[in-house]
Amino acid sequence: MTRMKDKVVIITGAAQGIGAVYAKALAAEGARVVIADVLDGAPLAEEINASGAEAMAVRADVADEVSAKAMAQAAMKRFGRIDVLVNNAAIYASLEIQPFEDIDLNEWDKVMAVNVRGPFICARAVAPRMKARGYGRIINISSGTPFKGTPNLLHYVTSKGAVLALTRALARELGEHGIAVNTLAPGLVLSEGVIANQAMRDKLTAPVLASRALKRDQTPEDLIGPLLFLASDESAFMTGESVVVDGGSVMH
C-alpha cells in the first residue's frame, strides 16, 4: 500500500492506545512516522522498523512549546520535511465522570493544557515547515461529545469543542499556504485506556450503544480509514471540516 508513500507524519500521543494504531496504519501505507509522546515510543518505533517501514520516537510534551519545537526539529533532522501532523495526544480515559461542580480546577487546567493548548502549540511548531513547501495536512482529534453535549465530563467536552473551533479558524489562516486542517471526531472507542477504566465503561457503554445507528462497540481500527483519507491527497480539497466516526450516534 502506497497511499502515504514517503510522507512524513508526526503523531502525538502515539506510544500506545489509538495513537499507536494510527502510527502502524500510516506506516503500513508507506509513511515515515514520528511517534511523539511523553511516554517511551521506542518499542513501537522498533516494531514498525522491523516490519520494513520507517519510524522514530521523540519524547514530547505537547503542552510545552519548547518540547513541541524540539519535536518538529527532530522530524526535520531525520526526514527533512513534515507533511502531516496528527494532534492525537489528549487526556480522557483517566478522567472521572462527575458533575461539573466537583471537577478540580487543577484537573480542568491540565485537560485544557493538553487537549487545547497542545494542538495549538504543535500546529505552530510544524506550520513554518509546511508553509515553506506549500503543502501540509493537520488532523485534530476531537470527539463526538461536543456535538451531543455529553454531561459529567465538562472539562473534556469543552476542550474537544474548542478543537472544533481551532480547526475551522486555523483552516482559514493556513489555506492560502496549501495546508488543509480537518477534525476527526471519534465516539466512545474501546481503547486501552477506556478498557482499563471500568467505571467509565459501566456508565457510558449502554447509553452510547443505544444512541448508535450501528449497534456495536467502536474499536480503534474503525478510525483507520477516515484518518488515512484525511492524511492523504484523497481529501485534497477539503478543509475546516469535522468527520464524525461513531456508528451514527452523532449525525450532522
Rank of each mutant, 00 (worst) to 15 (best):
Q98Y: 00
V163L: 03
A31E: 05
G52V: 15
L188Q: 01
L166K: 01
P128M: 11
D202K: 11
H177N: 14
Q73E: 15
P186I: 00
T150N: 06
N197F: 01
A180E: 08
V34P: 14
L85Y: 03
R137G: 04
S211K: 15
R78I: 03
T150S: 10
K148I: 09
A199D: 12
A25G: 06
A196W: 10
A55M: 09
E221S: 02
A231N: 00
K148Q: 14
D104V: 07
G144S: 11
G175S: 12
S191K: 04
L190F: 08
I97H: 09
K5H: 14
E47V: 09
K148M: 13
A15Q: 00
E47Q: 12
V189D: 00
V38R: 15
A75E: 01
R201T: 13
N182M: 05
K69I: 14
G118K: 00
T239R: 09
L153I: 14
L44V: 07
L154F: 10
R3Q: 14
A74N: 12
K215C: 15
T150A: 04
V84R: 01
F229K: 02
N140K: 00
T183R: 07
V244T: 00
A196I: 04
E221W: 09
V243N: 11
S67N: 04
K7H: 11
G30C: 11
A125C: 11
